[in-house]
């Protein structure tokens, strides 16, 4: 609690100090306004002097510590010049590198090769996905996307290592003070969340399932579902969310999604590396159930992303799921 600056000199503050045992009330009784003011100014001078002494001592100690490192002083003296020289050198290097780049949009550029033609012309026929981008990132470049999903998994694990409070008193207190500053059970937020959360979930599922037909896919749909989970938590609290999404569900969903995803992709890798045909029917492009394994990969990626987003929020908020 912050106190006003003129509170200190009032009668009540002295009573409070006396009750708390910080000063002798009777000895401190002012005989006149002047004396009290003098006392106060004396006190202020004393504290100022003490502060100055402390500061001087600290500076002396710092000097003692840094004196052997004399070259640091020299370095600091020339820091500006050295930084300017390094910046100019970096600038020249980058400009030279840019001048060596091929011109933008030229047909002979190395980026304009047969790969892009293949993606655009044969993408729908080979992957069965109407959305070329999804067919590209989940099928042709599946290895890259698998790495991205692993990065998500590792990031969530690292945040868990740093922030997860396992058990004991700390866990209890962190759970109790979770909504210490926040207004609890805000009825306006709850009513709107009642209406919005199902809409958000349905929209996220739509984006995931339509990943191979329209813009969207596992990453964006998973982010939408994670945002819906976060909205639900901030409206109703962790107790109600824990009924359908707790640590156990999180572990099972995340690990199994990653495992299924990797097994789907290893099928592609095995078949591609040995020059075998794809035996999974692609279906007619444009249907929901088509394009082979891309639909399932989208679902697994979506689960992974939704779990990661929710886990980040929960871990940063109270150190547990």
């Amino acid at each position: 609690m912050k106190k006003r600056s003129d509170y200190r000199s009032t009668f009540y503050s002295r009573i409070e100090n006396f009750v708390n045992g910080r000063e002798e009330f009777l000895l401190y009784k002012p005989k006149g306004d002047l004396e009290a003011k003098q006392l106060e100014s004396l006190e202020a001078e004393l504290t100022e002097a003490a502060d100055l002494l402390e500061k001087r001592e600290a500076r002396q100690r710092l000097q003692d510590m840094t004196e052997p490192l004399d070259f640091l002083k020299k370095f600091h003296r020339h820091y500006g010049k050295i930084a300017a020289i390094i910046c100019v050198m970096l600038l020249i290097l980058l400009l030279v590198a840019v001048s060596w780049l091929p011109p933008f949009g030229h047909p002979d550029n190395p980026a304009e090769n047969e790969v892009i033609k293949r993606y655009i012309e044969k993408g729908e026929e080979e992957t069965g996905a109407v959305n070329i981008v999804t067919g590209l990132i989940l099928n042709y470049r599946g290895f890259d996307t698998m790495g991205e999903t692993h990065v998500l998994f590792i990031a969530a694990s690292c945040v868990m290592i740093l922030l997860l409070i396992a058990e004991g008193e700390e866990k209890k207190s962190s759970y109790a003070f979770d909504r210490y500053l926040e207004p609890k059970n805000d009825i306006i937020v709850q009513k709107v969340a009642n209406f919005l959360v199902p809409v958000v979930f349905v929209f996220g599922i739509y984006v995931i399932l339509n990943g191979h037909l329209s813009p969207g896919g596992g990453f964006s749909g998973g982010a939408i579902i994670g945002a819906g989970l976060i909205l639900y938590v901030s409206a109703f609290g962790f107790k109600k969310t824990g009924r359908f999404f707790n640590e156990h569900v999180y572990k099972v969903a995340k690990v199994s999604a990653l495992c299924f995803y990797v097994s789907c992709l290893s099928y592609y890798f095995y078949m591609g590396a040995h020059g075998l045909d794809n035996h999974i029917p692609l279906g007619t492009p444009g249907n929901i159930i088509s394009s082979g394994l891309i639909l399932f990969i989208n679902i697994f990626v979506g689960t992974e992303v939704a779990c990661t987003m929710y886990a980040f929020y929960a871990l940063f908020r109270k150190g547990g799921l």
């Binding site: 805000d186 306006i188 709107v192 919005l196 901030s234």
Partner: peptide, 14 residues
């Protein structure tokens, strides 16, 4: 309109 007013409300209470 629903979500922006709700977010303003939450920020204000915070």
């Amino acid at each position: 309109w629903m979500t922006s007013s709700i977010s303003s409300h939450v920020i204000m209470r915070m």
